[in-house]
Simulated assay, not measured.
Amino acid sequence: MDLAAARGQPVHAVAAGTVTHVGVIAGRPTVTVTHPGGLRSTYEPVDAAVRPGDAVRAGQVLGTLVVAGSHCSPTACLHLGALRGREYLDPMTLLGPVRVRLLPLWRAGP
């Protein structure tokens, strides 16, 4: 899931856990936090302020958002992922209850 954001904004952990990865994947700097129960949250592109093995609490700053050759360029966006084992999950579940609002598709012309 891509979340609109600005370069340099702090990136916060969605829940408490342990940092299990800080590095570069596919040319983009990433951070992974493993939460109790084995769920992992992934964040990219992030200039990390944490190291593998660090315990983090919900809301703790993991680093800052950078622009790193993503499909959002030239602006920034945070890619948030959720995995359990090798299965990708809906990362919206990491954000708690949210209200989804669909806008109408407008067509040009009469």
Rank of each mutant, 00 (worst) to 15 (best):
P97F: 09
R101W: 14
V100I: 10
A76W: 01
L80I: 09
E87I: 11
A82Y: 04
P97C: 10
H79V: 02
M92E: 13
P104C: 09
V98D: 11
L80A: 03
T75W: 05
A76C: 05
L80H: 02
R84G: 09
Y88R: 12
P97W: 05
R84V: 08
M92D: 13
P91E: 03
P104H: 05
W106M: 11
V100M: 05
L83C: 04
L103G: 10
L94K: 00
P104T: 05
L94T: 06
A76K: 04
L78H: 08
R84M: 09
T93I: 10
L95K: 11
W106V: 15
L83M: 10
P97K: 15
V100W: 12
M92K: 14
L95N: 10
G85S: 09
E87V: 15
V100Q: 13
C77F: 03
P91V: 06
L102D: 06
T75C: 00
G96Q: 13
P104M: 09
T93E: 11
A82M: 05
P74R: 04
P74S: 12
L102Y: 13
A76P: 02
R86S: 13
Y88M: 03
T93K: 13
L78F: 05
V100H: 10
T75I: 05
L102V: 12
E87A: 15
L89V: 04
S73L: 15
R86V: 04
S73R: 06
A82T: 01
V98W: 07
L103C: 04
L94Y: 01
G96E: 06
R86T: 14
C77H: 01
P97T: 13
L78D: 02
T93H: 08
E87M: 09
M92Q: 15
L83G: 00
L83A: 03
A76T: 00
A82F: 08
L94I: 11
G85V: 03
V98T: 14
R84L: 02
H79F: 04
P91R: 06
R101S: 15
L105N: 10
A82D: 01
W106T: 12
L103S: 09
L83Y: 04
L95E: 06
P104N: 11
M92I: 10
T93P: 01
P97Q: 15
L94P: 04
R86L: 06
V100T: 14
A82L: 01
L103W: 14
P104G: 08
R86G: 10
D90R: 11
D90L: 07
H79N: 00
W106R: 12
R99T: 15
A76N: 00
P97Y: 08
G96M: 10
D90W: 08
L94Q: 05
S73H: 07
P91S: 07
M92F: 13
G81N: 00
C77K: 02
E87L: 07
V100G: 01
A76H: 00
A76L: 02
A76F: 00
P74D: 02
R101H: 14
G96V: 03
P104A: 06
C77Y: 00
E87C: 06
L103Y: 13
G96H: 12
C77P: 01
R86W: 07
P104V: 03
